[in-house]
Computed example of a mutant assay.
Amino acid sequence: MRVLAAMSGGVDSAVAAALAVDAGHDVTGVHLALSQNRQTLRSGSRGCCSVEDSHDARRVADELGIPFYVWDLADRFTEDVVDDFVAEYAAGRTPNPCLRCNEKIKFTAVLDRALGLGFDAVVTGHHARLDGTELRRSVDAAKDQSYVLGVLTPEQLAAAMFPLGGMTKDRVREIAAERGFGVAAKPDSHDICFIPDGDTRGFLSRRLGSQPGPVVDAATGRQVGEHDGTYGFTVGQRRGLGIAAGDQRPRYVLGIEPVTRTVTVGTADLAGVPAVRTGAPTWTGRAPQLPFAAQVQVRAHGAPVACRVRPDDGGGLLVEFADQQRGVAPGQSAVFYEPDPDRGDRVLGQAAVTAAVEREAGVRR
C-alpha cells in the first residue's frame, strides 16, 4: 500500500513510520507545520511542532530512505483547534484540543489530502489498536490514546494505521535505539502543544483580557472570592481558587456562568453528579441501539465507569453513571467503551458533554 506517515519529530511517529517500511509499504513521510511561530525552540517535554521537531522528523526519514515533506497547516490548526479552544473556554466549557486536532487536522485535513493524492492510508504513532476497523485501547494502559481517537468515523479508521498499539512505550524506545534514531530518548510531549510554557490561564488571559467576577459558595450563596475571568477555571478544579470560604474543607468548582461571570464552588459532597447530557454522538462503527450499557471515560486520563446510555432531547444522549462522578465539565468528551469484560477495550464512540444533571437544586453546572 501507499502509506503517508505523519511524523511529528517524536519517537512514536518515528517508530511507526519504520514499522510501516518494514511491513513492505511504500511510505512517504510528512511533518505537519502547525505552529505559526515554528522558530520557537522546544523546551524539554513542552510543546511540539517546533523547527527542532521538523529537523528530527527529517533525519528519521533520511535514515529510513523515504521521501519527506512538510505540510504547512498552521492556519487550519489555528482556526480549528486554537481558536476553538479559546472560544470554548470563553463559553464556560472545557475542550480537549488533542481530540479536536485528531478530528479536524490529522484525520480530516491530512487524511483527505492523502487520499486525494492517491495514498491508501495514514500511519501515526498513536498508542491504540485497530482490529479490522474496530478501535481498541493500547496494550500499554499508561500510554493509551484511544480516548482522543474516539471521535473518528468508520471511514477514517478504515484508512488509518496504528502500529504501536500492541507494544509498550518502553519497547517503542528500544526499537528506536536499536535503529540508532536520535529521538530514541527524546522526552514525550506534555500539556497543550500550543501553550509550551504550560500556563493555560495566562494564554487565555492574553487572548480574552480581564473579565472579573465573583466566586460564590453554593451552600450559602455568599461571595467568597473574585477572579479575573471564568476561563481560568474548569468544573472539578480544586487548586488555585483564591477563596476564603471560612472553614478548612476543600472547595471544588461546581459551575461556571460566563454571562454573569460567576464561578460557583462547593464542598466534596456537592461535587458529584449522577448523570450528564451530551450533544449528538459520533460512532466508530455501527451505531448501537439505544438504550445500552457501556463503560464511559470523561477525561483523557480518567478511569472508565459503568453507565447506562439513553436518548435525550435534540439528538443527544443522557449518560447515567453507576457511581456519581466529580469534575465532569461541559465541553469534555464522554467516550464510550464496550461493557463486556472480554471486549471492554473496544471504543464505541463519543459525545461532547453539554451539562450535568442537577443533584442539588440551585447549583448551575
Rank of each mutant, 00 (worst) to 15 (best):
L4M: 07
G9S: 06
G9H: 03
V27T: 05
T28H: 14
V30A: 15
V30L: 12
H31G: 04
H31Q: 05
A33M: 10
A33R: 15
L34P: 10
N37C: 08
N37Y: 10
R38C: 10
S43R: 14
V51W: 10
E52T: 15
H55C: 12
H55I: 15
D56V: 06
R59M: 11
W71K: 05
F77S: 00
E79H: 15
V81P: 02
E88T: 09
E88F: 03
E88W: 07
A91G: 11
R100W: 11
R100E: 11
K104M: 13
K104I: 03
F107E: 01
T108L: 13
A109I: 10
V110H: 01
R113F: 12
A114G: 13
A121W: 01
A121H: 02
V122M: 01
V123L: 05
A128G: 05
R129Y: 09
L130K: 10
D140H: 07
A142C: 04
K143C: 12
K143V: 02
D144A: 04
Q145T: 13
S146V: 08
Y147P: 00
G150W: 01
L152A: 03
A158P: 00
A158Y: 07
A159V: 02
A159G: 04
A160Q: 00
F162D: 02
L164H: 04
G165Q: 04
M167A: 07
M167G: 05
K169Y: 00
D170E: 14
E174Q: 14
I175S: 06
A176T: 00
A176L: 05
E178T: 10
G180K: 12
A184V: 02
P187K: 09
D188T: 14
D197V: 14
D199K: 01
T200Q: 13
L204A: 03
L204I: 06
R206F: 05
L208E: 00
G209V: 13
G213S: 08
P214G: 01
P214L: 02
G221H: 12
G221T: 09
R222W: 04
Q223W: 06
G225K: 11
D228L: 14
Y231S: 05
F233P: 01
T234I: 11
R239I: 11
R239Y: 10
A244T: 15
A245E: 02
Q248F: 10
R251V: 14
V253D: 01
I256L: 15
E257M: 10
T260F: 05
R261I: 02
T264K: 07
T264C: 02
T267M: 09
D269A: 13
L270W: 05
V273K: 00
P281R: 13
W283L: 04
G285P: 03
A287W: 07
P288C: 08
Q289P: 00
L290Q: 11
P291E: 14
A294G: 03
Q297F: 09
G302C: 07
P304M: 01
A306L: 08
V309G: 02
R310S: 14
P311M: 09
Q325H: 07
G327E: 01
P330E: 00
S333G: 06
Y337W: 10
Y337R: 09
E338W: 07
R343G: 02
D345H: 05
R346P: 03
L348C: 06
A352R: 15
V353G: 02
T354M: 10
A356G: 12
V357T: 10
R364G: 02
